[in-house]
Simulated assay, not measured.
Amino acid sequence: MTVKAQYEPRMSAQPHQRASTQAPASESPPARRDALTRFASLLVFVLVWHVAALAVESSTLPPPLTVFERIVAETVSLALPEHLATTLSRVVISFGAAMLIGTAIGIAMGHWRRLDLFLDGWLVLGLNIPALVTIILCYVWFGLNDAAAIIAVAINKIPTVVVTVREGARAIDPRLMQVASAYRLSRWRTFTRVYLPQLQPYLMAAARSGLSLIWKIVLVVELLGRSNGIGFQLNVFFQFFDITGILAYTLVFAAIVLLVEALVLRPLERRVTRWRG
């Protein structure tokens, strides 16, 4: 009887282990279906665009094939890759600066009530000042250069990061922090293993919403005061009423945004929130 009792838990655990090892395989079909659904949505968009272009029969709405041919031509001439690389570098630098500064301020405001009260008025002011005003002021103060452009973009993004991260800092479970203190974890381990995992959903929300905002502001910054980048080139096309060029550069820029969302932000969000089950 004792021998049987000893082997029963092991035997009962084996089916459970097989089920757990087979779980990831069952998760792949839904992922494929989601990808196919998104791809089908893009195809429908192109089809609707093509039908609308045929119905209008005007230079104001060129068909998709004409725009795709322009994309190829601009890529071969290296004009499109050059302007795209310049814009993406500004996006990355301003996004990183805004996330670092906004996260630090948001955590501090969520942790210390006095600081929250002191900076709340500044935060409301930063949220309501139009981006165009900030861009113009930065160009006047710092000159028509990349530093002014990046500062202008970061200033417009920081308040939204602060608001989101501050709410996350306020939602931190104090009981988990007490457990970390009871186990005498160091401040760094408490921050990385207990505090930061609770804050990660808010950081991802701030990153996703902020990145969508920064894409747009960078184009405005380039349109107003830079001599390169996607925004600058769109302004050139506008002056010559080149609708095909505008749509070509817009489509490439939108494709980059979709790729970043699909290949970076979504997988990262699933990874950092996996601990929640």
Score class of each variant (00 low, 15 high):
residue 234 L to A: 04
residue 230 I to T: 01
residue 205 A to W: 13
residue 183 Y to V: 05
residue 153 V to A: 10
residue 152 A to Q: 03
residue 184 R to L: 03
residue 178 Q to L: 12
residue 182 A to V: 09
residue 153 V to G: 02
residue 176 L to T: 03
residue 224 L to F: 13
residue 239 Q to H: 02
residue 212 S to C: 13
residue 203 L to N: 10
residue 221 V to Y: 10
residue 186 S to V: 08
residue 227 S to V: 05
residue 158 I to E: 07
residue 192 T to W: 14
residue 154 A to E: 01
residue 207 A to R: 07
residue 238 F to V: 00
residue 189 R to M: 08
residue 231 G to A: 06
residue 210 G to P: 10
residue 185 L to F: 09
residue 172 I to P: 00
residue 214 I to G: 04
residue 238 F to M: 06
residue 220 V to M: 13
residue 161 V to W: 00
residue 172 I to V: 12
residue 171 A to Q: 12
residue 190 T to P: 06
residue 170 R to E: 00
residue 225 G to N: 08
residue 172 I to W: 03
residue 161 V to P: 00
residue 151 I to S: 02
residue 190 T to D: 12
residue 159 P to K: 12
residue 156 N to G: 12
residue 237 F to I: 00
residue 217 I to F: 03
residue 158 I to N: 05
residue 224 L to I: 15
residue 206 A to K: 06
residue 170 R to Q: 04
residue 161 V to N: 01
residue 234 L to G: 05
residue 172 I to G: 00
residue 237 F to S: 02
residue 224 L to V: 15
residue 156 N to E: 01
residue 235 N to F: 07
residue 178 Q to Y: 10
residue 165 V to I: 14
residue 188 W to A: 14
residue 165 V to P: 04
residue 238 F to G: 03
residue 227 S to N: 13
residue 171 A to P: 02
residue 213 L to C: 09
residue 228 N to Q: 13
residue 213 L to H: 12
residue 177 M to L: 14
residue 166 R to E: 04
residue 182 A to W: 00
residue 222 E to Y: 10
residue 181 S to M: 04
residue 164 T to W: 04
residue 180 A to F: 07
residue 161 V to D: 02
residue 192 T to K: 11
residue 170 R to G: 01
residue 162 V to K: 05
residue 209 S to A: 14
residue 154 A to M: 07
residue 186 S to I: 05
residue 160 T to F: 15
residue 179 V to F: 12
residue 153 V to N: 00
residue 156 N to S: 08
residue 223 L to Q: 11
residue 190 T to Y: 06
residue 191 F to W: 14
residue 231 G to Y: 04
residue 217 I to R: 02
residue 166 R to C: 10
residue 164 T to L: 12
residue 221 V to C: 07
residue 234 L to P: 01
residue 232 F to E: 01
residue 193 R to D: 15
residue 162 V to F: 01
residue 167 E to C: 04
residue 153 V to E: 00
residue 197 P to I: 15
residue 196 L to K: 10
residue 237 F to T: 00
residue 226 R to N: 03
residue 198 Q to H: 08
residue 169 A to S: 11
residue 181 S to G: 11
residue 172 I to Y: 05
residue 221 V to A: 15
residue 173 D to L: 08
residue 164 T to Y: 03
residue 194 V to P: 09
residue 204 M to I: 13
residue 205 A to C: 14
residue 209 S to Y: 11
residue 239 Q to R: 05
residue 228 N to W: 03
residue 190 T to H: 08
residue 220 V to C: 04
residue 186 S to T: 15
residue 165 V to F: 07
residue 208 R to G: 12
residue 179 V to L: 15
residue 219 L to W: 06
residue 221 V to L: 07
residue 168 G to M: 04
residue 188 W to V: 15
residue 193 R to K: 14
residue 152 A to T: 02
residue 239 Q to L: 02
residue 208 R to E: 10
residue 207 A to C: 11
residue 213 L to P: 04
residue 199 L to A: 12
residue 182 A to R: 08
residue 232 F to T: 00
residue 159 P to C: 08
residue 174 P to F: 09
residue 186 S to Q: 05
residue 178 Q to A: 14
residue 223 L to T: 11
residue 232 F to W: 10
residue 176 L to F: 12
residue 211 L to H: 11
residue 209 S to K: 10
residue 171 A to M: 11
residue 170 R to N: 00
residue 176 L to Y: 12
residue 179 V to M: 15
residue 162 V to R: 08
residue 220 V to R: 03
residue 185 L to E: 06
residue 205 A to G: 15
residue 217 I to K: 06
residue 184 R to E: 07
residue 183 Y to I: 02
residue 192 T to Q: 10
residue 168 G to S: 05
residue 211 L to R: 13
